[in-house]
Design a binder for these strands. Structure first.
Lengths: 208, 208
DNA sequence: GTCTATAACTAGATAGAC
DNA sequence: GTCTATCTAGTTATAGAC
């Protein structure tokens, strides 16, 4: 296994657990059992390392998501919101084949990146992967055409918030659920629980 | 105005904007125009300062919320979920009288504290203000008795996520809304937008 | 109570030997 | 490509003069 990959793996799990700001290069290199200087040699800076960690997943996820959402946009009959949101499940679970716990790690990283380091991840997603976002908006528009662009904007951000926040604390939540209800849930099952919630939220009647 | 309050005010807005980890004592004291050593003299440590900033709001909010939720729990007829969630609005807006932008700042702090510094705020809320949480759970149970305790647990955390995450990036979202839709929203209007969303989410039909 | 000065430590980044 | 050693700049916290 290459030094570069050892660093990526160590950085990924530490970033997911403690956030980007909360993880030092020294912690990463000592977990990866490589030299401190190796990060700057291979990646140039901590910021570039963060991008590399995210890209490893986004490069797998983006094409799968684009395909799934395109299918929905191009189909004849009107999709349901649940259908649109369910389109995310398979691509997300495919990340488990990139690495063990890939889905969970990626979603936690997404959550970290949204709140850490003043919206750097918002920039990363909107500039590097804009087509996924616009396909998603199109799919939702097809499922719920009465929704105005403005209301759509808010509800999509609420949804992003729900998912990202849930996932960034999913370890803690799964622990509590195990203690209180004796249920051992997988990340896939948590996703299954959140979909009816966000589908109902996005599909809420327009209050005006 | 006392040094102690100058520190609290400066810390509050910097914490809200850059998170707890992302704000140094030097930034706080220079914004407050007091000496660096004053923080440790008045509060003992950065951690205690964080608690003091949160307590200033929680001590106003908690009794108001308890009263509003108690009313709902004790009323004869069955409340709607919207009613339960709407009970939060007045207490939250009352924080604007503690300080200008109090509501917005407090909700942003809540968001920061949930993701920063490994769940310290979760501990803070559940240990220092447990009665608010249990009253809220009771109110929701009364509004939607078919919901199992386990499903309730998940949906309440999804709701917490939606609200907290939205508020922690509310400045950015309000900026985008202003640019894209030429709408200048207040924090009260954002709350009005999020309530139908979370009410629909909590009230979603039980899938399984 | 408020200040200066500084201790004690950690951060990210890099120069240069091998 | 990998190492040690070190630089610079940042952090929290505190001792002691006023």
């Amino acid at each position: 296994m290459s030094t570069k990959n050892k660093i990526l793996d160590a950085a990924e799990s530490l970033f997911a657990e403690h956030g980007f700001n909360g993880t030092s290069l020294r912690e990463i290199t000592s977990k990866a059992e490589v030299n401190l200087a190796a990060v700057n040699y291979h990646f140039g800076s901590k910021k570039e390392l963060i991008k590399a960690v995210m890209s490893r997943y986004m490069n797998v996820l983006a094409p799968l998501l684009e395909a799934a959402l395109s299918d929905i946009c191009e189909q004849e009959n009107k999709p349901s919101l649940t259908e649109v949101l369910t389109a995310f499940i398979e691509p997300l679970l495919a990340l488990n084949e990139v690495k063990e716990n890939g889905t969970s790690n990626f979603l936690q990283l997404l959550g970290r990146g949204y709140t850490d380091s003043q919206g750097f991840l918002r920039w990363f997603l909107t500039t590097q992967y804009p087509s996924v976002i616009s396909l998603f908006v199109n799919a939702v528009q097809k499922a719920y055409p009465e929704l105005t662009a403005e209301e759509m904007f808010w509800r999509l951000h609420f949804t992003m918030g729900t998912v990202v926040f849930t996932m960034s604390s999913s370890d803690a939540l799964m622990d509590i659920a195990k203690n209180d209800f004796d249920k051992d849930l997988s990340i896939a099952e948590v996703i299954q629980k959140v979909i009816p919630y966000v589908a109902a939220g996005v599909g809420a009647p327009i209050s005006d």
